[in-house]
Computed example of a mutant assay.
Amino acid sequence: MRHLTLLLAPALLLAGPAWSQDHAAHDPHAHHRAEPAPSPAAGADPHAGHDMGASAAVAPNRPPPVAAGSGPAHAADHYFDPVEMARARDKLRAENGDVRTTALIVDRLEAGFGEGEATWLWDVQGWTGGDINRAWLKTEGEGGVDGGLDEVEVQLLYGRAVTPFWDVQLGVRHDVVRGGDDLSHLAFGVQGLAPHWWEVDAAGFLSQDGDLTARVEAEYDQRITQRLILQPRLELEASARDVPARALAAGFSHAAAGLRLRYEFAPEFAPYVGVEWHGAVGGTADLIEAAGGEADDVRLVIGLKAWM
């Protein structure tokens, strides 16, 4: 080995600085031996090399020239096949400004347990359409586990976005009640996101008999962890006048308040457990109690929230 070193020594001496520079990057101790960088000369401009005027010239602070908008609407059609260009514009519009979406949200699919009979219900809504115009489907139903289905409500609505967070909705509602007459309504309302992230659905209903009722639902997701969510939920119903056939008195008629704790195994699959109070209020509660019924109830609920 010593003989090899002696043989290579003259070549290394001839290579001199070039060899040392080429291998400095591979020297693990090079940073310990690096010489300090020379300090800038007195009076040198610390911003030298940064042409501030060049960047200002790239983006002038003035409006575009008038001639920029004076040409034809689709100038590229003069150079390319107009049919192909129209197809490209339609695709661009669909992908960037006219996206069609469809969703189905199972807000509540739950069973309730209280002093009386165990109950079950569903609360589902979905839409299809774009960002501005949508067709909505909403349906609710409930009944007893042993007694079968008691009531079903179905709404078909047209919704139009009027602000980034609110839609106005207009359509029809149809109720099917066991042991009673079916009833149709004109439905109108708003749905969206209120301040502090409350999801609100407020609607009025004008029945085929001329009875005007209203309902407001509000719920809020309070994240405890990324998967564990506590949701308070409120609901309030009112009637514009007495409707004896439906055991309704003028004023506020029904209310509900509950807390549900759900766990998101995935955003589209989240079982929950909770407690809810619901019942009649005001003159409606008096009508129900006079008929021998219970005006309110507190129930343990177990259910599932999902979407697809």
Rank of each mutant, 00 (worst) to 15 (best):
V177K: 02
M1K: 14
V162H: 05
A249E: 03
W198T: 00
P267K: 06
R178L: 01
D107M: 02
A54L: 12
E264T: 06
V106T: 09
S55C: 10
L8C: 13
L212M: 09
R227W: 09
D209M: 04
V124P: 00
R215D: 00
H50R: 11
D181R: 08
S184F: 05
P64A: 11
G130S: 07
Q208S: 15
D90I: 06
E95G: 01
I288H: 04
E264R: 10
P65N: 13
T213R: 05
T139R: 11
T102Y: 09
G189R: 00
F165C: 07
P82F: 09
A238K: 00
H50K: 07
L104N: 10
D90G: 13
A250C: 05
A291T: 04
G69R: 07
A30I: 06
R33I: 10
D51F: 03
A250Q: 12
S207N: 07
E35I: 05
P164V: 03
V152K: 08
E35N: 13
A9T: 11
A161F: 03
N61D: 15
E151G: 01
G171Q: 04
S184M: 05
I302M: 15
P60V: 06
H3P: 10
A118G: 12
Q155D: 13
R233A: 13
D221E: 15
W19I: 10
A285Y: 01
N96W: 11
R260H: 10
A44T: 12
Y272Q: 06
A256E: 02
D242S: 03
P40K: 03
I288F: 02
D27N: 14
G143A: 06
P271M: 00
F252L: 11
I302G: 15
L156S: 11
D123W: 00
H29N: 14
T139K: 10
G204N: 00
A249Q: 01
E115Y: 07
K138Q: 11
G192I: 01
H78C: 07
V99F: 01
G282P: 03
N61E: 14
Q169C: 04
H32A: 15
H78W: 09
L183P: 01
P65M: 11
R173S: 03
G283H: 01
G251I: 01
E276H: 08
H74M: 12
L137C: 07
T5P: 02
Q169M: 13
Q222F: 14
E219R: 10
E115D: 15
A54M: 12
V298T: 13
P164A: 06
Q169Y: 03
L287D: 05
N96G: 09
R173C: 02
F165S: 14
A34P: 06
P164E: 08
V124L: 11
N61F: 11
V172N: 03
A245H: 05
A54Q: 13
A76R: 13
A194Y: 01
V301W: 01
L193W: 10
D77C: 04
A34L: 14
A41H: 12
I229H: 03
Y79Q: 12
T225D: 10
